[in-house]
Every structure is written in structure tokens, then in C-alpha cells.
Design a protein around this nucleic acid. Structure first.
Lengths: 225, 225
DNA sequence: CCAAAAGTGTTTGTGCTACACCCATGT
DNA sequence: ACATGGGTGTAGCACAAACACTTTTGG
């Protein structure tokens, strides 16, 4: 064990890939990059890249996400490590997949030489995906659904201020089912996670909604649903 | 991304380590191996080893567990990937940690040339551990506690037949708190996970206990506690 | 008969579910 | 005035928690 750097190991390299979700146009969407290299021209892929000898995997994941899409300061956690021997046609690559969340802010996404486009795609309508990236997205969605019900992680999908309906819609979108408005409010208030900001949001032709913010913007393990 | 095998990546190697738990002498115990190599003479470590170019990580974890300890056919799942740049003094090693469970069967553990001893240690009284293996064990214990309450995973810690007290003791040991016998039975029976085997176990000087077995010995996600 | 563990019900309170109407606003 | 989403309460039920005594056995 760990008798370092025998020749036979030199072809195993390590990459990271980040499944980053946001809510956009009432749908859960994931950020993808269009590839240029054969055999994957016209395929889309998760933002990621290989790690260097002197950086930790977590740092590498953050770095590649930022370099390839311009996204930073988001909730990020390790998801799963994909290690099938044949998962990458270019060689032996083990990928540590990460799972990330951000509020949709409409900012323009960065593009680079290497990739022709960067874009959000609804999780239910994904384009052609390279490698085993579809599997990563499926797993990430399951993780998100699970975490939504036993943590307060939803804070990382909403901007600072939001209405109760916004919050409820997040749950409905991700869990894929309708919730009862009165019961939902009751539970959320009982948990004392929110405080009123005092402001209101006015819409076209209806009663203004009170705005709320989270008391604490950090992960807590709490039964929510 | 994935422009394979640039020279600078050749020093990153991938290893697996398995945190395998059992219940022995009324305690949660973990299987460790005594190392021989400097600077870790007299340290203990989790069973593991480097992966080869053509095997998947899952296969590698199973294989190393078997080769170093003789343990096989146990519940095994991926735990977390440890990727700090300085976690191994011998070089850059990323380790994919696994989490495993087995019933204690008293079988003699295999030893190899490379390691002087293989032994079970109570999680609460660990010896000096190499690398970041203590961190792995801590994380695995948390995972076990969580899974115990939302899955039927306990089946993989018990032998085929067991009494209700055995089952309850497993929960008490791992969660570290006493449970009410009557409420515990009520819940377990309501879930219809068990069936009587018909046999009984007799002790020294008290009423014999009925033996049960699990209806299904496979992981199910169910709220148990 | 004594010690040790097995086995078994009821009560009380809490939390989840289901359900429908009035309010404030802009056009 | 009307259309739209905002906001609010109650009753019934099921589940969780607290709680103690009798049974069976071997010595």
C-alpha cells in the first residue's frame, strides 16, 4: 500500500466534475458546457477538469467551476466518485463528482477558448451528455431531493429576499409534487428559520407579498418535510 | 479537460480504504491492520491499497479488503473521497474510502507478509492511526448512525437468526442511548421486517427468547426510528 | 424460591393531513 | 367589478412517548 509511483499507476488520473443546479423559469436547471473535442463534438458536459499534484480535490473542483463558467461562492459538497475503468475513452480517469447550488442571478456566463458554449438546461430535458455525466446528474438530483427534506439547504437556491410562495415553489419544483399552502407555512414558521425583512414585493394586480430572509445562511440538519 | 497523461499528473495515485464495522463484545468495532513501514511502524491503518489501471474502484476496494483481511461478501458502499494534497507523506495519494458492515463471526483473520497483525478495535478506543484514517472512521460512524434510522441496514450487522434483544442492543450500541423495549418492538413489528424462525435461544437461567430473521436481506429506505 | 431476561397494553399528547374562504391590489 | 395571487384556522386521526408488571427458566 502506498509504495508510491510504480509505473503501472501513471495512467490513472483524477478529475472533478460539478453538477451545479439553479432554479430558472420555474424549473430545476443544470449548468453544462459544450465540448469541442472528438469523439465528443456537440456533446455537452459538466464543468470540471483534472487535478494537479499539489492541490486538494475540493480546491480543484472550485477552481475548475470558476475557470470554466465564472461561477463562484456557491454551496458545494462532494457527491460521489465515479471509478469505472472504461468511463472515459481517452484513458483511465477517475472523477470525483461534486454537487452545487446557486440562486439564479441572470449573470452572463463566461466562455473559454476550449468550449464553445456554457448554458443552463432543465434537468428534465438534457441534451446529449458526454461520459457518465447523465448518471452524475441523476444522482445529484436525488441527493438534492433528500437534503431538501432533512436540512435547510434551500437557502442556497434562493436569493437573499423571497416570498413564502417562492419558497414553496422551490420545494414543489424539486420534489415534483404540490404542497398544501397552509400546512407548508405552519411547518416553516414552527421551525423559526425565517424572519420578515419588512419589505414587500408587489406584482401586477394582486396583494403584495411580504418578503422574508433566512435567520442563518448555513447548513443545518433539521427535519423540514 | 481529459487531455490524458500529461507528465505532471503521473504522481497522483488512487487508493481505497475500507472502514469495516462489526459488533463484538457489546461494542462497535473496526478492523485495523498493523503497519510495518516507516514512518508508520507501530501505527494501525484501515485495510486498503492502490487501484490498478484496469479495475474499477469498487472492485479494488473489495479486493484489497479480502487480500488483507480475508473478509468478503459484506455490505459495502462508498463513503467519501479524501483528497488533501498532504494526506500521505509518501506522495500524492487520493483515497476513496468505503464503509462496510459484517456480523461478527469469530473467524480467524488472515494476516499477510506486509502487515504484522489484523485486529478488531472498539471505535471508542482506537490505537494510533496512520494517515487521516481516524477521520475516515469518524465519518463512517456518522454514516452508520444515520443509515440505521432511515434504512433497514441493520440486517448486515446481525447473523441470520437473532433475538429481539439482540436487535435492540445493536441500535442502543450504535446510537449510544437506551431505547424503550415496548416501543421498540411495536415499531419493528409494524414495519413487518421480521419473521419468526420458530426456534428459541436458551440462556443460563431465564426464559428462552424467540429467534427472528429478516424477511428481506437487502437495503431498503424506510423510516425506522 | 430466587435471579435474570423475555414478553406484553394503555394512556396521553403531539404533529400531520385535509380542507375553503376572505384580503389587498392593479387594471 | 373582477382577476390574481396573498394570507389565514380547525377538526380528526395516526403516530410517538411514557410507563411496570407477569412469565419462564436454571440453579
Amino acid at each position: 500500500m502506498r509504495k508510491v509511483v510504480k509505473k503501472k499507476y501513471k495512467f490513472v488520473v483524477i478529475a472533478t466534475d460539478v453538477v451545479i443546479f439553479t432554479l430558472k423559469e420555474g424549473q430545476l436547471q443544470v449548468l453544462l458546457i459544450k465540448m469541442k473535442k472528438a469523439p465528443y463534438e456537440k456533446y455537452w458536459a459538466l464543468p470540471g477538469g483534472m487535478i494537479k499534484a499539489k492541490e486538494s480535490i475540493n480546491e480543484a473542483a472550485k477552481k475548475h467551476l470558476f475557470n470554466k463558467t465564472g461561477v463562484k461562492n456557491v454551496y458545494l459538497e462532494q457527491l460521489y466518485t465515479f471509478g469505472r475503468a472504461d468511463r472515459d475513452p481517452f484513458g483511465r480517469v477517475v472523477s470525483v463528482a461534486y454537487f452545487a447550488l446557486m440562486p439564479f442571478n441572470g449573470l452572463k456566463l463566461k466562455t473559454t477558448r476550449e468550449y464553445s458554449e456554457v448554458n443552463w438546461f432543465p434537468v428534465e430535458r438534457l441534451p446529449l451528455l458526454a461520459y457518465d455525466h447523465r448518471e452524475m446528474i441523476t444522482l445529484a438530483k436525488k441527493r438534492l431531493q433528500a437534503k431538501l427534506s432533512y436540512t435547510n439547504i434551500v437557502y442556497s437556491l434562493l436569493s437573499k429576499e423571497f416570498t413564502l410562495s417562492d419558497l414553496q415553489k422551490v420545494y414543489e419544483m424539486i420534489l415534483g409534487k404540490k404542497l398544501d399552502k397552509r400546512n407548508f407555512c405552519k411547518k416553516i414558521f414552527a421551525l423559526k428559520l425565517l424572519k420578515k425583512t419588512g419589505a414587500e414585493r408587489r406584482g401586477k394586480a394582486f396583494r403584495p407579498a411580504k418578503l422574508y430572509e433566512f435567520v442563518r445562511r448555513q447548513l443545518e440538519v433539521i427535519q423540514i418535510l
